[in-house]
Design a binder for these strands. Structure first.
Lengths: 122, 122
DNA sequence: ATTATATATGAATATATGTTCATATATAAC
DNA sequence: GTTATATATGAACATATATTCATATATAAT
């Protein structure tokens, strides 16, 4: 019994040596966690609608955003906060109004790849 | 009062005409929903670990996968089902053993873009 | 100052999602 | 056939997440 706690089944097709190699060379959990968290941001209809709208108009105030995507001001604000915290959007204030816009080069690429993927699939 | 139900606030910075233009030209909700669903698949640590492991080894059985990423066989199986249903992985059976591998060209690109994004950010 | 407007946010609620546990199924070994 | 193994899956549970509602805050208009 040398395989200890890593032993879930007796199959171990690729062999202990390769298994341990893989286990060691995997990116640290933290990186993988961060990647998952990043994708999670995109994994919500409301946020995707916001992102999409900001692609089209470049800059929008909360109110107009809310009307355009048809979601309550409160819900939009809540989601904008998440997008802000992830640094995916930036904002500027002008009087009472707050204008939001996209704040990341990668977003467009990633978003478009996904869109392509979905569209091709059909 | 012509702005009717689309009227959430009086701000309407970009104007009704442009608002309605945007509302009409937005991709249908369904497409945006599908895109969000697609990202949702990547938005989980366990699934990202699976995807990452399959990048490294190309093909892995459930058991070895489970050992490599350090997550129970049951949880891995459940997540593999989700990945299967989204057609992100394919599998082949060999006796008792089931081998999984990635089944999509786009995944690598999207995954790598996200990884880049996260790494650059630091 | 008072009132109206745009946005943000806390709390409550509802819903979705992931894990575990127990167990089913399928195949292999004996 | 019986037993062991690899995988899949349903149910229960725990946790996370999004929305709504009420309200706070900040600015503008009167």
């Amino acid at each position: 019994m040398k395989k200890e706690e890593t032993d879930v089944c007796k199959n171990n097709v690729i062999g202990d040596i390769r298994i341990n190699e893989l286990r060691k060379n995997l990116p640290e959990d933290e990186l993988l966690f961060d990647i998952a968290e990043f994708f999670k941001i995109f994994g919500d209809s409301t946020r995707i609608k916001i992102i999409n709208a900001l692609f089209c108009e470049n800059e929008l105030c909360v109110c107009d955003l809310s009307v355009i995507i048809g979601i309550s001001q409160s819900a939009v604000s809540h989601q904008l906060r998440i997008l802000r915290q992830s640094k995916l959007v930036k904002y500027r204030k002008e009087g009472k109004t707050v204008f939001y816009s996209l704040d990341d080069e990668h977003i467009k690429q990633i978003y478009n790849l996904a869109k392509e993927h979905i569209t091709e699939e059909k």
